[in-house]
Amino acid sequence: MDTLISRFADHLALAGRSSHTMAAYQADLALLAAILQPAPLHAADANELRRALAKLHAQGLGGRTLARRLSSWRRFFDWLQKNGLRDDNPASGLRAPKRDKLLPKALPVDSTAALLDRIEGSDALEVRDRAIFELIYSCGLRLSEAVALNLDDVDFADQLLRIHGKGNKMRLAPIGAQAIACLKTWLEHREAESGETALFIARHGRRLGGRQIENRLRGWAIRTGASQHVHPHMLRHSFASHMLQSSGDLRAVQELLGHANLSSTQIYTALDFQHLAKVYDNAHPRARKGIKPDEDS
């Protein structure tokens, strides 16, 4: 059986697969072979594969991992079938357990405020950084949307921001007072090359890139003592979560985020529920474990 797995790995190599991918396929197939013993791997039927999935699931493997392993198995049996080593693919009709839904990571309200308030200084780059991150959090911007902003996208009179979203869709978002103040301070420091229209520019006077923004936020998070890795999209997630916690208006949050489908916004309701559940667990007298009934009751 090791010979078949090796031949399959050679096939993947000829197809241009990376060494990492080949190693993953081989590990997935070796695991299946160990589960099926003493039955041979190449002769497995759909029921045996289904039992193998159930066994791995019972051992605690999540839906995403099981889906990847099943994909490896399916690819292997497809190769066997195409090379005349069996008549069918027993994995073709199988489905892994539902994948775990990955919730976006959001900062608590107080942690967000602490991070932003500690980004300070008179240096132009520090002033710029504060303005960028305040604006991303204030308007729920994607990183690409922050990078694409031009000077004329900011309406200071009405405190509105014109955002160039996905698919060239334009939307308007209100700008909070804190972000407005930081933007005005930044514009006093902004020194761009002639003809540059970007709202946020780098030291050389040209439009600031997304990677630079990510690096600057990571550096600020470390300097201000953040307990986790912070990236720009986390500020967008925090905006959505905090808005939903305060307003409960899913449709409004959808419009502010620029989501085409409400389903994209609904994931934040899970974050909102987590917040409520945490409050409940901390506050309700009978929610905490280990509470004993009164002895005289």
Rank of each mutant, 00 (worst) to 15 (best):
D294G: 02
E134K: 11
K278P: 00
R203W: 07
A146P: 09
Q254M: 10
N47Y: 05
R74D: 07
P90K: 12
A34W: 01
R218F: 09
L199Y: 06
L141S: 12
L125I: 15
A34N: 12
M243R: 09
A114E: 14
A124V: 04
Q274K: 09
E188A: 15
A198N: 06
I136K: 06
F200S: 08
H11V: 00
R216G: 04
A177E: 13
P40C: 07
V154C: 05
D2H: 13
Q159E: 15
S111P: 00
R75A: 15
L116G: 11
H189N: 06
L244R: 02
N282M: 11
I222L: 13
W79C: 10
S194V: 13
W79L: 01
T269A: 01
A198K: 09
A24P: 05
T265L: 11
P38F: 05
G165K: 13
A13K: 11
L53P: 11
L271K: 05
H233Q: 06
D123V: 07
Q26W: 00
N47H: 13
P232K: 08
L271E: 02
H237T: 03
G60H: 08
G225Y: 04
C139E: 01
H237A: 11
N282K: 14
A44P: 04
S241I: 05
D153P: 06
M1D: 12
L61R: 14
G205S: 08
A198S: 15
S194P: 11
A106C: 02
A177S: 15
L115P: 12
G93Q: 08
F156T: 06
V154W: 11
N47A: 13
K105F: 00
N47D: 12
R207V: 01
R74V: 03
R95V: 11
I180D: 01
L80V: 07
A277T: 12
L102R: 14
F76Q: 01
T185F: 00
G209I: 01
N47K: 04
D281S: 14
M22T: 13
P40S: 14
A202H: 11
N47V: 03
H164I: 00
D153H: 11
H275C: 04
S72R: 01
D100L: 08
L56G: 03
R288N: 13
K101I: 13
D45E: 06
A181Y: 01
